[in-house]
Every structure is written in structure tokens, then in C-alpha cells.
Amino acid sequence: MRCLLVEEEVHQFSNLVKALSGEDVSKCYQCGKCSAGCPIASEMEILPNRIIRLIQINSKDTVLSSSTIWLCASCETCFTRCPEEIDLVRVMDVLRRLSLEEGYRCPEEGILRFNRFFLASVKNYGRVHELGLMMKYNLASRQPFKDLGQGIALFRRGKIPLRPQRIKGMDQIKGIFAKSKPFLEREASGGGGR
């Protein structure tokens, strides 16, 4: 008799997630606590517990192109309450990186743009320069006057330095950015890790 489900294939995606995050999503039995406590659940098209289920059933495209993985705020409520102690934040991190690596379109452009500009600021100065970051973000998102009122109010109170602070150890920071890879394989024999 022909076997309809090939073990390796059906678990391909969950094995990959396990190899990259060290988290075994097959332990999830869908209690839904993660989604019940998630502060961003109402903005998500796919709830966190469903993301886990989709990983279990190998729906890689649906997961990696969903906005949910970008809307996760890393608040750690899900991990704290998970009866199986699945570190969903770590899983979300791996899903975000996989989605970038494999060229999926990010449905939350603004969040990705903010993250990239934030890290660019760290790469250039060693610390975040908030004014530069906000101006760059607003220009790139074609809304130059967004939060202008708040910005002026903060500036008046001396809370927005005009100039960035550059640290002395910039060579080291550049080196860290040049050498860092997106993934750390958690298990040598996990399979699928790059």
C-alpha cells in the first residue's frame, strides 16, 4: 500500500523551525492561551495559536507571508503562559528572519522599515539617534509631518538631541554587523538549518 504522508515532508517546516529556534511546536495542543493573552490579537489576521497549527501542518507560505509574525510585539505574554513552555517569541523571530531570507513580501512594510532604520542608526553611531531615525522613517513612508506636534513638544523639553552620539568603539560595532548571521542553529542534526 502506498503511504500518503511521508513523515519527512509533512514535518519539514516544523523541523526547520525547531532546528532554527530550538522550539518544538509539535507540543502545542491548541489551548489558545497565547492568543487569549496577546495584546495585538485584534489586529492580527491569523492568531498566534493558529500560526503554530499552520507550522504543524506544513503551511509554510501562509505563515511566512502573514502579517502576524510582524505584528508580534515580543511582549512575552504567550511564552509566560504557555503550558508547554513553547517560546513563541523565539519562534516568531525565526519566522520573521525566514520570511526575509526567503524573499516573502512583508505585509507590514512600516514595521520592517522601522527595524532596518533603527539598526542602521546603531551601525552608524553605536547608539540610536532618535531624531535621525524618525525623520528618515517619515520621509521614507511619505508622511513627513507625522507626529510633528509631539516631536516639537519633546524637542522644546530638551528631549530630542539634534546630533547623534557616536561611540568610540565603532570599529567593533562595524565588525559585529559584518560578522553576524541571521540564524543560530540550535541542533546540529535538526535538518533544514542553513
Partner: peptide
């Protein structure tokens, strides 16, 4: 002395190694 950014959320969203290295520095 000469502390640098911890990488915050953008760090660990983009690269685990970067996030760890920025903190360890």
C-alpha cells in the same frame, strides 16, 4: 564606559547573532 545600543527588538527580529553580540559587547 563607551556603552552601545543593546539592539532592542529590531536586533533580535533581524538577527539572533547580532542581538547577542551587541549585548555581549
Amino acid at each position: 564606559p563607551d556603552w552601545s545600543c543593546c539592539g532592542a527588538s529590531p536586533g533580535h527580529m533581524i538577527s539572533e547573532e547580532l542581538a547577542l553580540a551587541l549585548s555581549v559587547r
